[in-house]
């Protein structure tokens, strides 16, 4: 992955070198406070690009509902089916499934 555009302490976002849009690498707990801090910058980048996005959650052990809201807003910007969660821990998959978001958002 070539990180060229946005690289902040809270996340890194770059063109995915597979040509499938943007890849946003997150790490640590995505709790209410943290999502409040990063959402605006992530959504601004998605709005500017309009490209599909993959959130890489390999190093994310916990999400609050604020992250689900971020994913809903991201799907509104880039289109349902164009938001992908990669390397998702089973408890996180479960909350997306309960929320009925495992269809509009691809989760691996």
């Amino acid at each position: 992955m070539d990180i060229v555009a946005t690289n902040q302490s809270d996340f890194a976002m770059a063109e995915d070198n597979s040509g499938r849009g943007l890849r946003c690498v997150l790490s640590g707990r995505l709790d209410t406070e943290r999502c409040g801090r990063i959402s605006e910058a992530i959504l601004a980048r998605l709005q500017a690009s309009g490209q599909p996005v993959t959130f890489d959650l390999a190093d994310v052990p916990f999400v609050a509902s604020a992250f689900l809201r971020l994913c809903i807003l991201a799907a509104r910007l880039v289109g349902s089916g164009n938001v992908h969660l990669a390397n998702t821990a089973p408890p996180i998959k479960k909350v997306f499934k309960i929320a009925g978001l495992d269809g509009p958002i691809r989760i691996d």
């Binding site: 609050a64 509902s65 604020a66 809201r69 799907a75 929320a99 009925g100």
Partner: peptide, 20 residues
């Protein structure tokens, strides 16, 4: 309770946390 069957562009943003 949120309607979890709605398409994402029609969903209210709130209510998911308590529902889950």
């Amino acid at each position: 309770l949120p309607d979890t069957s709605l398409p994402v562009d029609q969903r209210p943003i709130g209510g998911l946390g308590l529902f889950i």
